[in-house]
Amino acid sequence: MCDRGMAIVVGTPDDLDQVVGVLREWQAEGAPMQLHPGDVGWYRRFGARTGAVRTWSRGGRVLAVGLLDGPTLLRLTAAPDVWQDDELARRMSEDITEPDRGVLPAGEVAVESPVGLLLEDHLSEAGWTAGEPWTPLRRDLTDPVEDPGVRIEVVGPERVAERVAVHRSAFDGSTFSEEAWLLMAAGVAYADARCLVAYDGDDAVAAVTVWSAGPGRPGLLEPMGVHRDHRGHGHGKAITVAAAAALRELGSSSAIVCTPSANVGAVATYRSAGFRPLTEVRDQVRSSST
Rank of each mutant, 00 (worst) to 15 (best):
V155N: 05
R44W: 11
T240L: 03
V154S: 10
T269I: 14
L67R: 03
V53Q: 01
T129V: 10
P277Y: 04
W26T: 01
A245C: 06
T135A: 10
Q18N: 07
A255L: 09
E29D: 14
V82P: 01
V257E: 04
A48T: 15
A106D: 11
W181E: 10
G127M: 02
L118N: 01
R286N: 05
L250S: 10
L104K: 00
V22R: 07
D100G: 13
E146D: 13
G216L: 07
I96T: 00
D95I: 02
L88G: 00
S253W: 00
A89K: 00
S113R: 08
R282H: 13
E29R: 15
S57D: 06
N263V: 06
M184L: 13
P32R: 03
R61T: 15
S254W: 04
S169T: 12
T12R: 12
V109P: 00
E222K: 11
M92Q: 04
D85A: 02
G187I: 08
R101D: 02
V150R: 08
R217Q: 10
G149N: 04
D172Y: 12
R194D: 11
G59D: 05
S177P: 08
F176P: 01
A186I: 09
P13Y: 06
D86S: 14
T259P: 08
R24C: 14
H233N: 13
E158P: 08
E280A: 14
R228E: 13
T209E: 12
A31D: 08
A7I: 05
A185V: 05
V9R: 12
D3L: 11
L137C: 08
V285E: 03
W56V: 09
E249P: 06
T77C: 04
L35A: 06
A48E: 14
E25F: 02
I96P: 00
V19H: 07
M33H: 09
T240C: 11
R101S: 10
A28R: 15
S169D: 12
M92I: 06
T290D: 09
G116T: 01
L68A: 05
T77R: 03
D283A: 15
R194N: 10
V264M: 12
H122I: 02
E132A: 15
R138T: 11
T209K: 05
D15R: 15
L23M: 06
S124W: 11
L16S: 09
V197M: 04
D85L: 03
E158W: 10
M184W: 04
D86N: 09
A273R: 05
R90Q: 10
V62G: 02
Q27N: 10
A262W: 10
T240P: 03
T142A: 15
